[in-house]
Design a protein around this nucleic acid. Sequence first.
RNA 1: GCGGCCGUAGCUCAAUGGUAGAGCCCUGGUUUGUGGUACCAGUGGUUACGGGUUCGAGUCCCGUCGGUCGCCCCA
Length: 420
Amino acid sequence: MTDRQPLSTEPYKGVRDFYPADWGKMQALFNRTRELLASYGYEEYNASPLERAELYESKGNEEIVNEQTYTFTDRGDRRVTLRPEMTPSLARMVAAKRRELTYPLRWFSIGNRFRYERMQKGRLREFYQTDIDLVGLPEGEADLEMVTLAHDLLIAFGASEADFSIHVNSRKLLRLASEVAGLAEGEHARHYWQLIDRKSKMSKEEFESARKEFTADPLAVIEAGTDAGVAAEKARLESFIETLKARSVGNAVLDLDVVRGFDYYTGTVFEIFDTNPENARSLFGGGRYDGLVTLFGGDPIPAVGFAFGDVTLMDFLTTHGYAVHIAASADIYVGTPSPEDLPAARSFADELRKSGVRVFMNLAEKSLGDQVKEAVKRGIPYFAAFGKNEAETGTVRLKTLATSSEEEIPRGEVAARVMH
RNA sequence: GCGGCCGUAGCUCAAUGGUAGAGCCCUGGUUUGUGGUACCAGUGGUUACGGGUUCGAGUCCCGUCGGUCGCCCCA
């Protein structure tokens, strides 16, 4: 007992502590996201991070579930997984009330996700992700809205179109071309698309020689343009991008190499890339998954959506020099010349609070000079001492710390001055 | 699962194999009813841990642990 090792102050591997300044930054991101999505009529939903393990296993990829999730058995012998993504939970919630919901659903959710994996830049074991989905509309306008939202979000965070580009593709196009080329579903096809997905990481020679190992080559079918069905889908995709440009999404391009996994995408897929050559990586992406909800029985419900993580987004904003503005913790610091002044100062503070002012009240015994220093350090914009003099005269000296200015005003006018 | 780099003060980092340092932070002072700057002073170390080589190791070697970046994977 007495010789116990001190506990480590380090957080668990791969997760972060959020001190108030850090969490303030996160909240700033979340709130800007909420504002933008609210302007498009999206509603926020949430669910527990705990889910039945079967929810992820039934999707077929056992390896990912076994090796890359936090899964445990609870005291009732139920296998439980910390959600690694939100879409299955969304599908479950939609399926559970499929007859009573009013479609289309414009839903979003902000929360933490857990993935048990080796860490590297931009990849932690717990991260915060915003999932945005438009459920109940077929391919078309809904997909345009999704890409537009992804675009507008980055713009809302301060980015300009030159900072990123939106690469759009169609899983339907790839599927049609596979059929024409004779690339059967299965491991072989999986390897082919994995190769395409990795293309940007390989040299041209490496890629071409690897490509030759496949007898069927769907991309060549698309390039040739001889199949009518394939050509029609490609034309649809091109006009999709033209429409985006006409609607002020100027940085969307067609990119046949965007694959984005394999399992549930069925139509439009898109991926946002950082244009900074130092950091030319995928920021986030999404697409159409019309098979949503079929796991739970019943007819499929068409849906399109995307998700972005906090780590990648924050990295992106930082490397492009876009600061995230954090609000001050309080509007005013109410100082006390001496401890005896506390009752009077407190009633002044209460007055302010009733008007909606956020007040930081000093309770420590220290000089006014130190109190002013403290207010500056905390980033509180206004300071007012409240003691005998103020109680008698009914006026206070209100300091604006940023401009070093000071003025004497009636106590009743302080609230209106310091609120924003 | 594989590989590279790194572990020195609370933080960011110095220190040819030869006395462990600086800046920031913190505390006090110049300044007890009102400021950040400046100046002065102070607190703060088992150099991650264990072994080895050496007259001598923060430095070189081996191992362990931790961190980080890349490969694989990426819902």
